[in-house]
Design a protein around this nucleic acid. Structure first.
Lengths: 253, 253
DNA sequence: ATTATAGGGTTGTAGGACAAATTTGCTTGT
DNA sequence: ACAAGCAAATTTGTCCTACAACCCTATAAT
């Protein structure tokens, strides 16, 4: 066990704070199955000694795992791995988004979710929602070129549609996914090809807004899926066979 | 500030560990807007003194916030609230799921996500996937009545379909939502009416499996949405106008 | 004016001490 | 011999002090 710990502790960049590294080590011990649900973790003293750190750091690490519902600590007894269905946080590994497959998967999920969100929004949007959405669209074309403010307005457009569904969970999830994608785009080298395609981008948003105004759920969904698919294609991401399912094409025959 | 802290600290059940309570306090300070992105948190010493606790507890609390990407601590400078798009964890408030509206919202999201997941799974499922899915279905009808094992098999059925999409993000999200719903059902008083409806439930699953075997995406999606809608209705949850969108009905006129 | 330097303040880590709770094993009474 | 209860050891929870590493600012030197 201590050997495993030492191996893992070197695979993490030393720039990260120590408690986070320890939390990653323990987290991997759990997700890899070396520590199964119900098992007891080594005592804080053992972990501290085995890693050559203070118990304080170990406690901060375990505190993170506890917050995620990964382990449950009982005073006097120890810390125990919880059942998978007890987890109460969802956390994405940033390294998964650095390769192209990860981004493709996230874009596909985004198309699904936001497409359905647009469909619901078309049915339930209030007038205030429409006002907010078109305001975001104005900010988008108002700001010049592809400035920072333009991107922010773009995101606001999508977030507001998700909010217009009236379902706070959909709103939360859409916000989360958008943020992940935005972060990846920012720090990756994606942000080079995208420059003067703003007109196309704005045009796709207009189609979505029109469908929302008209209250046409299916048109809104199709427009949103199309927009996200195209937006992904512009930065080199292809979403595999995301065929529209309006009844035109069948899977078999 | 200290007054706010003291108020909040009493609204949380004293049974929870102290660091988690402090984390909730700080988290609410942020989400409520009293602490805006870019703001610096009070120093650990100030927080500790203001709450009458040790700096150690404060550090564990901040450690949790840091893990969620809510704040970023810089040695020597302080802890700063991060921008919303930097958040790297999504966490649901368990109290939101105790009322009926929260469950309805979550069921709606579940229907959207799993419906689309079933559609993708119908196109991409391998033979192994089908084997796993039907195995779960066998376990479901094999176990008697509505036992614990039967519920577990039911969940496995849904998880495996999500996995068959080949998209790990969809799998992760579906697993997370299913776990939330399961937990709510377990600890709530929902688990009384559901008893001898197993046959109906199994029947709905069979329809889904058939569509997956046939490779019919739209049929799989409709079957999944129908199943989740009915499953919700059985425990008293109605998903508002989740009309099927196969082209039969339009929103306006 | 610009650069160096010194100082105070803040977070990061270490280590010790004790309280609270659980587990285990032993003792003791019947 | 058996059971109940008690005591000790173990483990987490909290507090405390101390120092290192680092940031920021103000002061001083060039």
């Amino acid at each position: 066990m201590t050997d495993d710990f030492r191996q893992l502790s070197q695979k993490l960049s030393p720039t990260q704070p120590l408690p986070s590294r320890v939390a990653s080590i323990l987290s991997q011990e759990i997700s890899s199955g070396r520590l199964k649900p119900g098992d007891r973790l080594p005592t804080e003293h053992q972990i501290a000694e085995s890693l050559g750190i203070s118990r304080n750091v170990v406690r901060e690490a375990i505190s993170q795992l506890r917050a995620d519902g990964l382990v449950r600590a009982r005073q006097g007894a120890g810390a125990f791995v919880m059942e998978p269905e007890e987890r109460l946080a969802i956390r994405l590994d940033p390294t998964d988004l650095e390769n192209i497959e990860g981004m493709e998967g996230l874009f596909e999920l985004r198309a699904l979710l936001e497409g359905e969100a647009a469909r619901l929004a078309a049915m339930r949007r209030t007038d205030e929602d429409l006002a907010e959405i078109s305001a975001a669209l104005e900010d988008m074309r108002g700001d010049e070129k592809w400035s920072e403010g333009s991107i922010e307005a773009d995101l606001l457009f999508h977030r507001t549609i998700a909010k217009a569904t009236g379902n706070s969970y959909i709103h939360t999830f859409v916000c989360f996914i958008c943020d992940q994608i935005r972060r990846s785009i920012h720090m990756a080298r994606y942000a080079n090809q995208i420059e003067q395609l703003v007109e196309v981008n704005v045009g796709e948003h207009v189609v979505i807004l029109d469908a929302l105004v008209a209250g046409d759920p299916e048109a809104a969904r199709v427009a949103m899926v199309h927009h996200i698919t195209e937006a992904g294609r512009r930065i080199g991401i292809i979403i595999r066979n995301e065929q529209d399912k309006t009844g035109k094409g069948n899977a078999e025959s």
